[in-house]
């Protein structure tokens, strides 16, 4: 189901305000860059904007009615003047951009208006991106371009310079927490989920996931054995950790959970108890916090972040975890 104006306005108030004002003032730009994390509603807002432009009967002059022919066709993905370009395989190729431009050299099927969206615009090849420049800067009249990306830092400056950039914000943790609990998630794990993802659906999934429940236990266990004896920690890695965190994404999740323990310890030291996320283990963690130092904690967090980076660079997970364990062990001087 396509989200309505009101629903999206709740998610992205300032984005919708921007669009609303532009529509009302008749100052809609010819090219936008929608940027922001996954699950922040970029494509949905793109479609909403398309409906605002094509709707035969917009409420207050800009809110799509959702029932006219045009709104329906856009919701069903078959409006002839709304074009969506997505990566073909890993990237968006120059030939795709050329085909798009050819299509746009004809006038609109039903009116002069035309819209195109490029999803994952950062995945345009260098050739593709450069061949878009002229078309993006000086399109025929009544063309609206919406480029969408989760990685704005990967976009060519020449492309960015030609667009109005609109940033989509992740859901703030507080709001995420209340939405999760409203959806029946146990308040004792909601704060943790809110730290791990900005995506409500993903968080809801995690909350039902046995793998995830088990993961928390294994991570905590690692911390405990680390404190006792790093050798034992190595054994724990073999016997439990690697059994559970098999895939790259899983391991990344494991590292995030581990990081959250250290953050909790830090928060406790700072007296910011309301920030703790391992609520079920609060008493134990408070005890741990007495046994370490703030500086040590940052070193440890840095080591975990570094491990996350190595993971992304495809370092061997086994090696990576063993190194990490050595770095995390208490009392060692960290390099």
């Amino acid at each position: 189901m396509a989200k309505t104006w009101t629903q999206l306005e709740e998610m992205q108030p300032s984005v919708l305000k921007m669009l609303k004002n532009s529509l009302m003032k008749d100052r809609l730009a010819h090219a936008y860059m929608f940027e922001g994390m996954r699950g922040t509603g970029k494509k949905e807002v793109g479609l909403l904007l398309a409906k605002s432009l094509f709707c035969q009967n917009p409420l207050e002059g800009f809110i799509p009615c959702e029932i006219c022919m045009n709104c329906k066709r856009i919701n069903n993905g078959n409006h002839p003047d709304v074009h969506i370009l997505e990566p073909d395989g890993l990237s968006i190729k120059k030939s795709q951009i050329q085909a798009l431009q050819e299509e746009f050299s004809k006038t609109g099927v039903e009116s002069k208006k035309k819209i195109y969206m490029i999803v994952h615009a950062d995945r345009m090849t260098v050739n593709a991106a450069n061949s878009l420049l002229k078309f993006l800067e000086e399109p025929s009249s009544e063309t609206t371009a919406i480029l969408i990306t989760e990685q704005i830092h990967q976009i060519l400056p020449t492309i960015l310079s030609r667009c109005q950039t609109i940033s989509f914000k992740p859901l703030p943790p507080q709001i995420m927490i209340s939405q999760l609990t409203a959806n029946g998630v146990n308040p004792s794990i909601a704060p943790m989920l809110a730290q791990l993802t900005n995506n409500l659906e993903e968080a809801l999934e995690l909350s039902h996931d046995d793998w995830f429940a088990q993961a928390q236990k294994i991570v905590l266990k690692l911390y405990e054995v680390l404190k006792k004896n790093p050798l034992e920690a190595m054994v724990h890695l073999q016997e439990q950790w690697f059994q559970h965190f098999k895939e790259k994404e899983q391991l990344d999740r494991g590292l995030d959970l581990l990081l959250l323990i250290f953050k909790d310890l830090l928060y406790i030291q700072l007296g910011m108890y309301e920030k703790i996320v391992y609520l079920n283990e609060k008493a134990r963690i408070e005890q741990f916090a007495l046994e370490t130092s703030g500086r040590r904690l940052t070193e440890q967090m840095t080591a975990i972040l570094e491990a996350k980076r190595k993971l992304q660079a495809n370092m061997n997970p086994q090696l990576l975890m063993e190194q990490l364990v050595l770095q995390l062990k208490e009392g060692s001087s960290f390099v």
Partner: peptide, 14 residues
Amino acid sequence: RDALSLLDQAISFS
């Protein structure tokens, strides 16, 4: 160009 895009946007937003 970047500046004028931003100005355009700020005018629309304001």
